[in-house]
Nucleic acid binder design. Structure first.
Length: 359
RNA sequence: GUCAGGGUGGCAGAGUGGUCAAACGCACGAGUCUGUAAAACUCGCGCCCGAAAGGGCUACGGGGGUUCGAAUCCCUCCCCUGGCA
């Protein structure tokens, strides 16, 4: 694996595509890596197709980094909630895809499939602590998360041997436990005992008051050994990423920039040029909603502090037009812009290190 | 000219005596979005007062009438669409 300059943000290409874009678009935004999803890709296109391409990278023609998520988030979003609830036992998670089609995901299967994806970084299957879990419920998810983490690690080592890999992927344990700091601590300690390349801040990182839970974020960063990478799963808003990098985090992934773009919310820096961006100022960016009436006659670019495909070539008025007529290229241009916003953010963070110890 | 069918909120289109400020949809406006069941979802959408519950006013082409009560029934005028002259 090539050397990574941390911190990094990997946008979510869950199904081996960053929605509304293609791999050359992503490359153009200076995005170093992406996240793909084990569960979704094992359903579609499935392992046989992935094998034919010798991994997801060739499948989607992407030569940057790839982290694969285990399906742990889907334990929450599809098995614990949603219209077709699944079932969770110590053995694994059963997802009901249609009324007569189900799939069992186990920690071992998740890891095995991630090897077939040939990703650079892998995440263990975890039992997502629901946002409103009480202490006992949270404790159970921690116990299962640790149990699964151990089995994942064993399967990981087995795969490395079987596949005779000299360049091993990185493996991340995921810390669960909800808002209970003592559970989080126990979970992190047990994961460290098992031994990983890094720890992930899992579960739902937003408190009930809508604020990002920095207490948990800090706890994990503080417990992790010096040589560990720290990964904020599903994190987050730009200011949350800045905050976590200050705590020592290295890796992030999130759907926000891409989803927000498709929903007509762009991020723009409060700056007149790229060098004047100050990510340490409290409100260093704002939202820009292209379709608002006031933008239709605006011939300026969306942002002066951006060098993306959209900002270099098209005006606010043109983008407003594309959104209004629901032209699909609006989604592409907006997505490209938001991805570039995030990659600029990470470039700024890398050039003004806070306490990044990982080389 | 005549026969038939119509004229409903920004558009489209239900409603055909009270439960109608008027369905559904579109458009428009506001908001949400954090390891993607998401190019999605929520809310608002005549005017005025109220934090809200709620209240007042105006409105279903124009005018007039019947009725306790009309977008809905009757008369009349105007306009549109189609068949026949």
């Amino acid at each position: 694996m090539k050397k990574i300059n941390y911190p990094v943000f990997f946008p979510d290409a869950t199904r081996a595509v960053l929605k509304a874009t293609d791999s050359t678009d992503i490359k153009g935004t200076n995005t170093p890596g992406i996240l793909v999803n084990t569960l979704h890709l094992s359903i579609n296109p499935g392992g046989r197709i992935i094998d034919k391409y010798q991994g997801v990278r060739k499948f989607m023609n992407w030569d940057g980094f790839v982290i694969s998520d285990s399906g742990g988030f889907q334990v929450m979003s599809m098995a614990k909630s949603g219209p077709r609830k699944g079932t969770i036992t110590d053995r694994g998670v059963t997802f009901y895809l249609t009324n007569n089609k189900k799939i069992l995901l186990t920690p071992e299967k998740s890891i095995e499939f991630q090897f077939r994806l040939r990703t650079d970084m892998m995440v263990v299957l975890d039992d997502f602590t629901p946002p409103k879990a009480n202490f006992n419920e949270a404790r159970e998810t921690v116990e299962r998360t640790v149990l699964w983490a151990k089995r994942s690690k064993d399967e990981f080592e087995k795969q490395c041997v079987e596949r005779k890999l000299k360049d091993k992927p990185l493996l991340f344990g995921v810390v669960q436990g909800g808002e209970y700091l003592d559970l989080r601590r126990i979970c992190a300690e047990k994961l460290i005992e098992i031994g990983f390349d890094g720890l992930g801040y899992g579960g739902w990182p937003i408190s009930e008051n809508g604020k990002f839970n920095y207490d948990v974020a800090k706890l994990i960063a503080d417990i992790a050994p010096k040589n560990y990478l720290i990964y904020g799963l599903g994190v987050g808003k730009p200011e949350e990423i800045v905050g976590c990098v200050q705590l020592g985090y290295h890796i992030f992934d999130c759907v926000l920039p891409t989803r927000d773009a498709r929903h007509g919310r762009l991020y723009i820096y409060e700056a007149t040029s790229m060098d004047k961006i100050n990510i340490r100022s409290p409100k260093f960016y704002k939202y820009y909603v292209p379709s608002k009436q006031e933008h239709f006659g605006d011939t300026r670019p969306v942002s002066q502090a951006c060098d993306c495909l959209l900002c270099k070539n098209y005006s606010r008025g043109y983008l407003a037009h594309l959104f209004r007529i629901k032209e699909i290229s609006a989604l592409r241009l907006a997505t490209i812009h938001n991805l570039r916003f995030y990659s600029i953010l990470m470039e700024k963070l890398a050039s003004t290190p806070a306490k990044i110890t990982q080389a």
